[in-house]
Amino acid sequence: MTVLRVRGRALPAGEYVDLYADGDRWTTDPVPGAELVAEGWLLPGLVDAHTHPGAKEPGDPLDEDTLRADLHEHVNAGVTVIRSPGLAGDPPAWFGNDPDVPRATHAGPWIAQHGQFFDGWGRRPAHDELPAVAAAQAARTGWAKLIADWGIDDDPIPLDVLTEVVTLVHAVGGRVAVHSQQAAGGANAVAAKVDSLEHGMCLAPDLLAQMAAQGTALTPTLQALTGSLDEARAKPSSPRRDWYVNGAGAHHALVASAAEAGVTLLAGTDSHPHGRVADEIRAFAAAGMTPHDALGAASWTARAYLGYPGLIPGAPADVVVYDEDPRTDFDQLAVPRAVILRGLLAHRRP
């Protein structure tokens, strides 16, 4: 098998590197006969840290053909790592492992309270069973995903239950991701010291310093939450409309404040179509993050958070190569010169 080679300015630092794919690991040791695939600006692969592939509509069962097609859309966009904080079912063994799909971290099916979340999706244990269910899931896959709140009149998962979840999940070496779009649910998630807060709409900004101090990351799914704001504002006032307009309307400012407070921000797209993480990068920058940090939230920062090192010897052999520095021109993200995944060529522009 031909060894692949790339060279150029490696982000985030921009130092010049010459890398060879020794199987699924990078090396700087020259390999005679290696094929120079591309040179330019090197990114250690994009990351979508909040995506739910495998089902076309909420409540649909997991479908393997849909799952693979969704994952191919990610790869075509330069995504080499995903995190799925919630899936429509337990994925097949090839998920995250086959050479043509991104590396994947997942939390299995969602865990919600009775009467909440989409019908047909997730598990709904009683409060006294919920911590053990979450810990068992994290022991299998490394993550458990909880729906801390749902409807605008629903009670969130109680703080004592959520705190016990975090204790038991951490005891098995796992992490806890929590969905929240209500102030009370977000406050409980932060107080319980969860590992990542998903969406975080309506979160009180004065909790951001605590999140930064304790290492709770925020995946704001900014574009997914704000994309329909203009349409919602045109509707008559109602409790649900006002909740959404007020919460999503403050979300850009929340993201900017989180970045300023030092919270780890992760880029995630949440919904169909897949392969749109570049839209989230643009949304982060529009909210006030620097282009460097906005791109990092969908690449080196997210990879580090998920345990994947960047473009160094011994790291997984993932790279996306661009003609120009994508931090100065986000349009580069749509036209990569080459994508290498697991040391194999996934895409090369003619």
Results as ranks from 00 to 15, higher is better:
D65F: 12
D65W: 13
T66P: 07
L67V: 07
L67I: 07
R68V: 12
R68K: 14
A69T: 14
A69M: 12
A69C: 07
A69V: 08
A69S: 14
A69L: 13
D70W: 12
D70C: 08
L71F: 10
L71W: 10
L71C: 06
H72L: 15
E73S: 12
E73G: 01
E73V: 03
E73K: 07
E73Y: 05
H74G: 02
H74P: 01
H74R: 03
H74F: 11
H74S: 03
V75N: 01
V75P: 03
V75G: 00
V75C: 03
N76P: 00
N76A: 14
N76L: 12
N76M: 05
A77M: 06
A77F: 09
A77R: 02
A77L: 04
A77H: 05
A77C: 04
A77N: 01
A77G: 13
G78T: 10
G78R: 05
G78L: 06
V79T: 15
V79P: 04
V79S: 01
T80Q: 03
V81Y: 06
V81W: 04
V81L: 14
V81A: 00
I82S: 01
I82R: 05
R83P: 00
R83G: 03
R83H: 14
S84R: 10
S84C: 15
S84M: 06
P85L: 14
P85Q: 11
P85A: 05
P85C: 03
P85H: 13
G86D: 08
G86T: 10
G86N: 08
G86R: 09
L87M: 14
L87E: 05
L87V: 00
A88L: 10
A88W: 11
A88E: 05
A88R: 07
A88V: 04
A88M: 08
G89A: 13
G89E: 05
G89W: 11
G89Q: 11
G89D: 11
D90M: 12
D90G: 03
D90F: 12
P91A: 10
P91L: 10
P91I: 03
P91T: 05
P92D: 11
P92A: 11
P92S: 11
P92V: 12
A93M: 14
A93S: 15
A93H: 15
A93D: 15
A93T: 14
A93R: 15
W94C: 00
W94S: 00
W94G: 00
F95Y: 15
F95Q: 01
F95D: 00
F95W: 13
F95P: 00
G96W: 06
G96K: 01
G96P: 08
G96Q: 04
